[in-house]
Design a binder for these strands. Structure first.
Length: 121
DNA sequence: GGTGTGACAATGG
DNA sequence: GCCATTGCCACAC
């Protein structure tokens, strides 16, 4: 009996998918904040599935809800998935609009504006 | 049902 | 200190 099973039983909805959780957490990211794939994965209980988080966001376009995936970067603060926004500059523009400074596909404010769902949520 | 993959993360040389 | 390799876990084929 794991924590996950209880949650899964409580939800018992289509949201039981790992993807939906990633979408939910990503939407919870406060404006002006930023997090990493590993932080989200760890919050979900799958610390080693950081890659899955990225993959889930890759399918975020399939979600009816807008997913601020631009607030999610790798541990280095690098915009590794900017190419998946359609235009490579879209993700950077969104981050700059949030008040971030993006240089060389890397968020300089990453260390300061880092938001950990496991700590904040 | 097994194999491959994937927007990462951590470790080793 | 930088580059290369391995591990990880859930989904698609």
């Amino acid at each position: 009996m794991t924590e996950r099973s209880s949650v899964r039983q409580a939800e018992k909805s289509d949201n039981d998918s790992f993807f939906c959780r990633v979408y939910d957490v990503t939407c919870m990211i406060p404006r002006g904040r930023i997090t990493s794939y590993g932080a989200i994965a760890r919050y979900l209980g799958t610390a080693g599935a950081a890659r899955m988080v990225g993959w889930a966001l890759n399918s975020s376009h399939s979600s009816e809800r807008f997913i601020p995936a631009h607030r999610v970067v790798n541990r280095n603060g690098m915009l590794t998935g900017k190419h998946h926004f359609g235009n490579a500059s879209t993700m950077q523009q969104l981050l700059e609009n949030e008040g971030f400074t993006v240089i060389d596909d890397t968020v300089l404010e990453f260390g300061e504006r880092f938001w950990d769902p496991s700590l904040e949520l």
